[in-house]
Design a binder for these strands. Structure first.
Lengths: 221, 221
DNA sequence: GTCTATATGTGGATAGAC
DNA sequence: GTCTATCCACATATAGAC
């Protein structure tokens, strides 16, 4: 992203090295049309490169997707882990508050939508997390499992009164809410006044609070 | 589904007419690997037919997917509409209860998972609803919009105190929960004891109640 | 109605020049 | 490091025999 010269903006993409141009274009196209919906030909054409460059830099299409996720997920994971740690330290020996745990996990992802590039990755992440292709599934689940485990353990401690299957269903609901918001697939826009969707998207911070209100109430019901 | 002769079960698929064999196999394969992840060759091979039969009966791959949805969604829509009407009639001039509206919309879909064929269609429906392919999106959104609109209007009346953007986000959460449960993508199974997931899946009726507890609390928070 | 054979297009991957 | 040209597998769709 941050390249050698001061860039004029996302449009001035040809100033960056070929490898980064490919990464950016692939991320955007995958986010809009899915991994299997975009050909390497299309990516290289729009990145002002050629097919061979992909195999030179990434070896394969699959490895290109993996590179995108590795690059983007690392800072996300770090922030999540740090926030969770703070929550757990504040709680001391007591179980943490459900809302705090949820905020530590959901916040960094939702806040990504503050930047256009982050919003693109959010859509990519959400789309890939339900992609039926085992290649895609393995990459996405793999990069997220490490950070999801301590979060789930903390949330479990925050809701000790729930039985196992209930916690299972509710955790699915939490993932579903997060996924759907990050995917932002336009379904609800077809059913509600356009102004409401625009207002919600304008303030991602309020969106996070609204999401937390929803999932906190759901987990504590 | 209900064919001429008393079938021995889903394995005895060759007793049915070619058109129905293709429909069933395509539904199952699409549900597991997505529309673009399955070739007509694979479908016809497993349905004990050949490529040309698909074009004879359905004209194209896209029309085959549409036929699956038309066939499955019709009874679902009818049940949803009837339950919603009952809820509205019970409420009279008063706004309906949010939980009743949610139950009318979510119940028929979740209960589909009671039968293996229904569970397959639920996965298909969920996967396709986030499929980035515009062809797929148009088919799925199209068949569901008609029934979603009165449901959304009723839910809006049940939550009059929410401002527009908040209702927008919360409705996205409701769709996200429904979608994720119906997709049942195995993500949460990787993070929780296997017994909890199995127990939850065994009793789809309890799953529906757990889902309703979650989304009702979320909408009324 | 059901098949084989094939037309036609596009995908990922690679060889080899520069 | 970057390109052109090409290989090969597989996709949808269709023509035409039976």
């Amino acid at each position: 992203m941050s390249s050698v010269s001061a860039s004029d903006g996302p449009a001035d993409v040809s100033a960056k090295p070929t490898r980064e141009r490919i990464l950016e274009v692939a991320e955007r196209l995958f986010a809009n049309q899915g991994y299997n919906g975009v050909s390497l030909r299309r990516i290289t054409t729009e990145a002002d490169a050629n097919m061979a460059a992909v195999h030179y830099y990434f070896r394969s299409k699959e490895a290109l997707l993996k590179a995108i996720f590795d690059y983007r997920v690392q800072p996300l994971t770090q922030e999540r882990q740090q926030r969770l740690q703070e929550v757990l330290e504040r709680a001391g020996d007591q179980p943490p508050k459900a809302r705090d745990v949820l905020a530590a996990f959901l916040g960094p992802g939702i806040r990504l939508s503050a930047t256009p590039q982050g919003a693109i990755f959010n859509r990519l992440s959400a789309i890939c997390s339900v992609d039926p292709d085992p290649v895609v599934k393995q990459i996405v689940f793999g990069v997220h499992d490490a950070v999801a485990e301590p979060f789930v353990a903390a949330l479990r401690r925050a809701c000790p009164e729930l039985d196992g299957p209930t916690f299972f269903v509710r955790l699915q609901c939490v993932f579903g809410c997060m996924m759907y918001l990050r995917a932002d697939n336009g379904r609800v826009d077809r059913l509600l006044p356009a102004a409401d969707g625009e207002a919600a998207r304008r303030d991602y911070n309020a969106t996070l609070e609204r999401l937390l209100d929803f999932v906190e109430a759901g987990m504590l019901a």
